[in-house]
């Protein structure tokens, strides 16, 4: 029986589930905000909180424990240097889960998971992404205009010479 066995299985075997949760926690610490499904968001919460608690302890033993769970060295450094100190004297509740509606393909409920206090970092990231997108759009527009300008002088004389008798179809 499942009595008193906490946690969700997420349809995976033990090693698969452990790898998934470690990946999720590492990504969240590195990116401050990730999008995933709501059950995964809820399943990862205790793991993230444990990592941040380790980060608050800040000693070498805690660092090694965190390094044995997190996937990358960079995540450990970020956890101890920026994430954990930011949480101050907050006792848990380090995450914010914002539900955003259902995925089209399979109807799974999607959610954003954020670290509390990362609003500024997330806003900056969004801003950067929006700028990059605008730049790309402008470049694509320019390339298209140039292609049109190149195509136009080659194409235009021909229809004019024949065009009057047959009529332009453009």
């Amino acid at each position: 029986m499942r009595h008193l066995k906490a946690g969700k299985k997420l349809g995976r075997n033990t090693s698969h589930r452990r790898a998934l949760l470690r990946n999720l926690v590492t990504s969240l610490i590195l990116d401050e905000r990730i999008q995933t499904t709501e059950p995964k968001a809820k399943a990862m919460r205790p793991h993230v909180e444990k990592m941040i608690t380790l980060g608050k302890r800040g000693d070498v033993a805690a660092r090694r424990l965190a390094a044995s769970y997190l996937m990358t060295r960079a995540a450990v450094d970020k956890l101890f240097d920026t994430v954990a100190p930011r949480m101050g004297d907050r006792n848990g509740g380090y995450l914010r889960i914002i539900r955003t509606g259902w995925r089209k393909g399979d109807g799974a409920e999607k959610a954003f998971v954020e670290l509390i206090g990362s609003e500024k970092a997330i806003a900056e990231k969004q801003h950067k992404r929006a700028e990059a997108r605008a730049k790309r759009r402008e470049e694509a527009k320019k390339a298209m205009e140039e292609a049109e300008a190149q195509a136009a002088p080659e194409a235009s004389p021909e229809p004019e010479s024949k065009g009057e008798s047959k009529g332009d179809k453009e």
Partner: peptide
């Protein structure tokens, strides 16, 4: 849930 129209939830663009 975050608003699908304007993307806001609890006074902040999400």
């Amino acid at each position: 849930r975050a608003c699908p129209k304007c993307g806001y939830y609890k006074g902040r663009e999400v």
